Simulated assay, not measured.
Amino acid sequence: MPSSATPVAPPRLWDISPLVAPDAPIFPGDEPYRLTWTARLTPGCPVNLSAMTMSPHVGAHADAPLHYANDAPAIDEVPLDTYLGRCRVIHAIGAAPLILVEHLRHAEAELPPRVLVRTLARADTHWNPGFSAYAPEAVDWLAARGVKLIGIDTPSVDPADSKALDSHQQLRRHDLRVLENLVLDDVPEGDYELIALPLKLQGACASPVRAILRDLP
């Protein structure tokens, strides 16, 4: 007999990765995305085959500790478990130039191990050197509450003109992971499942990720 049960809709997926393209905003001097064709589908060739060059920091990406410390692991050596699991999206729209603890306190209760902070009403499509970053004290505050991964919808957790990279160094001290260049434009504040696995790139200082959020059951 046919079932009378109401079909259950699959959990909604939120793609929080920007398009990787030649005009994607990058730090000045970084290697942009370039695609070339090494073979094209013709009567004498059965496939299209492309090759690409790019910085691993183009688009949504995971920094390896090697990015900010010479004696630290490359991205292929970083355990994957932190990039997968329950996370919280916190809205701090307009927090500039730094995300402070006061921008996060309203979402403090029962923080999961992963926190992504939205600072932009709409993601930048061109290089903006005045993007928001994390105050080092905010990184400390999150780490003290058991957070193992932080994310942001701008190119870096440190300001564009920073030389000391204080927030990156706080990541190193607390052994936190980081995701940068996320797109959180349409994601409501709340808890989700994060899936953002880096590629196993030998010796690399970072890796692109296809970052998604999935509604929790």
Rank of each mutant, 00 (worst) to 15 (best):
A24E: 00
E102Q: 07
E102S: 12
R114V: 00
D166N: 11
L194H: 08
H174S: 02
L120G: 08
T42S: 08
Q170W: 05
P43Y: 10
R214N: 06
R122L: 07
N70S: 14
C45H: 02
T38E: 14
L171R: 02
G29N: 08
S132E: 15
E110K: 09
S17L: 02
S132Y: 07
V209G: 05
D185S: 01
N181L: 10
A123F: 08
E180P: 11
L49D: 07
A96R: 09
A51G: 15
L197N: 04
R88W: 06
W37H: 05
D23H: 14
A160Y: 06
L179R: 00
R118V: 00
P32H: 03
L165Y: 14
D23K: 11
R177C: 14
L104Y: 00
G94H: 05
P188V: 06
K200R: 10
D175N: 09
A206S: 13
A206L: 09
H67G: 10
D15A: 10
P155H: 03
C205V: 11
V58D: 01
T82Y: 06
I195W: 14
P129I: 05
P22A: 08
A9Y: 13
D124I: 11
M52C: 11
R172C: 11
P65R: 01
P10S: 10
A138C: 15
D76V: 04
A138H: 01
V8H: 03
P10L: 15
L194K: 00
A143Q: 13
A9T: 08
S167A: 05
A95P: 08
G44A: 07
Y192D: 01
P113S: 00
I152W: 01
L201C: 08
T53M: 09
V58T: 04
L19K: 10
P113Y: 06
P25N: 09
G190T: 02
S3C: 13
V8A: 06
H126R: 11
H57V: 12
H126I: 11
A24N: 06
E31Q: 08
T82I: 01
D124L: 10
V115T: 03
I93W: 11
L116A: 07
A204T: 15
R210G: 07
A21N: 05
H103K: 03
D124W: 13
T53D: 07
Q202S: 15
A60S: 13
R34A: 07
L49P: 06
L216Y: 02
R214T: 00
L120C: 10
L41R: 14
P25K: 04
C205A: 14
L182D: 02
P25A: 08
P56T: 01
V183F: 00
V117S: 07
A9L: 11
E102Y: 13
L84Y: 11
D140N: 05
V8R: 09
D63V: 07
S3V: 13
A39Q: 14
A109T: 09
I152A: 00
D191H: 02
A121Q: 09
I195M: 06
T53K: 10
A74E: 12
S167D: 06
P155M: 02
G146E: 02
S162T: 02
M1E: 15
A121C: 06
G146C: 02
I16P: 00
V209Q: 03
M54P: 11
T6Y: 03
A138I: 07
A211D: 04
E137C: 03
K200S: 15
V157M: 08
N48M: 14
I150F: 15
